[in-house]
């Protein structure tokens, strides 16, 4: 083995950082694609919940239309919660194994490591969401959106998944065990239940209504529902849709930015 010549690596510029981010994303995706158990769980559980809500609870929901029209957007958000657990665990494993020391002793910026995990989370969610969506359509979900509506819904969901992935990355960095890291999914999955995902907010007890109305998941669901299935009861339309969408975007960008910054700082500080 020859180690006589010394290559002085170029100064890291933005180009290097972007190349590193792409390398790390490729790595996280490769590892995720080989973790079949996690992929199956992240897909099967939302599908089961979809079937349960539609066929078990659906009959009891007194609505003018098929309950599946109402509940599908919420189920799709649940997928993000399941994906979050595997993202947090993957980050935690990097932190507790020897990998973090090697990566930090390389001329690589901390955020590129976490970005890799977030990018992989987006790709994984695309797959699981696609499957859940396919099942929903197969059992009667009939979106009536135009091209713009579709683009808007997919765009917002992507933003939401990215925000949740940064939350998961943060939990992964600060958690000391895989179990603790996985607990993030409880927080993320609980929120859709206390929102307008499965029941209209005005059916909730008064004291819960305030929270349900103003928590981040509700405007996201309302917007997706308004875009994909504008005919369902409670779906926001017209000007109201625009303002709800803005609130939803603000929540996602805000959560994403805060947790991305927090995760990066925690990554740098954790010893």
């Amino acid at each position: 083995m020859t180690t006589t010549t010394t290559t002085t690596p170029r100064l890291a510029g933005l180009r290097d950082a972007l190349a590193d981010a792409a390398t790390m994303a490729g790595r996280s995706l490769r590892l995720a694609s080989r973790d079949l158990d996690a992929m199956i769980t992240a897909t099967a559980v939302p599908v089961m919940i979809l079937l349960m809500f539609t066929f078990v609870f659906g009959g009891a929901m007194a609505m003018d239309i098929d309950y599946i029209q109402y509940a599908t957007p919420g189920i799709i958000l649940l997928c993000a919660g399941f994906g979050a657990a595997s993202t947090a665990v993957a980050v935690e494993q990097d932190m507790s194994g020897g990998m973090v020391d090697r990566l930090r002793s390389l001329p690589t910026r901390p955020w590129t490591v976490l970005f890799g995990h977030v990018a992989a989370a987006l790709a994984k969610n695309l797959v699981t969401t696609g499957v859940v969506f396919g099942v929903a359509v197969a059992i009667g979900f009939r979106p009536s959106a135009g091209v713009l509506g579709w683009l808007g819904a997919v765009g917002l969901l992507t933003l939401f998944v990215a925000a949740i992935a940064w939350v998961a990355a943060f939990f992964g960095v600060i958690a000391r065990t895989p179990d603790a890291a996985a607990a993030v999914s409880f927080v993320v999955m609980f929120l859709p239940y206390v929102s307008s995902a499965f029941v209209p907010v005005d059916t909730l007890p008064t004291w819960l209504r305030g929270f349900a109305q103003h928590q981040p998941v509700t405007p996201v669901i309302e917007t997706v529902r308004g875009l994909l299935v504008p005919g369902t009861p409670g779906a926001v339309v017209g000007d109201q849709l625009g303002s709800t969408a803005l609130v939803a975007i603000a929540w996602c960008v805000g959560i994403g930015a805060v947790f991305a910054a927090a995760a990066t700082v925690a990554f740098r500080r954790r010893r």
Binding site: R10, A19, R34, G98, M99, P107
Partner: peptide
């Protein structure tokens, strides 16, 4: 370091290729 810093689910080739890219 003391702990092996490798991705167990990746091959030897993939591990080194990743580090090579990150090492510029």
């Amino acid at each position: 370091g003391q702990q092996v810093a490798l991705d167990l689910k990746a091959t030897g080739l993939e591990n080194l290729t990743m580090i090579a890219k990150l090492s510029r």
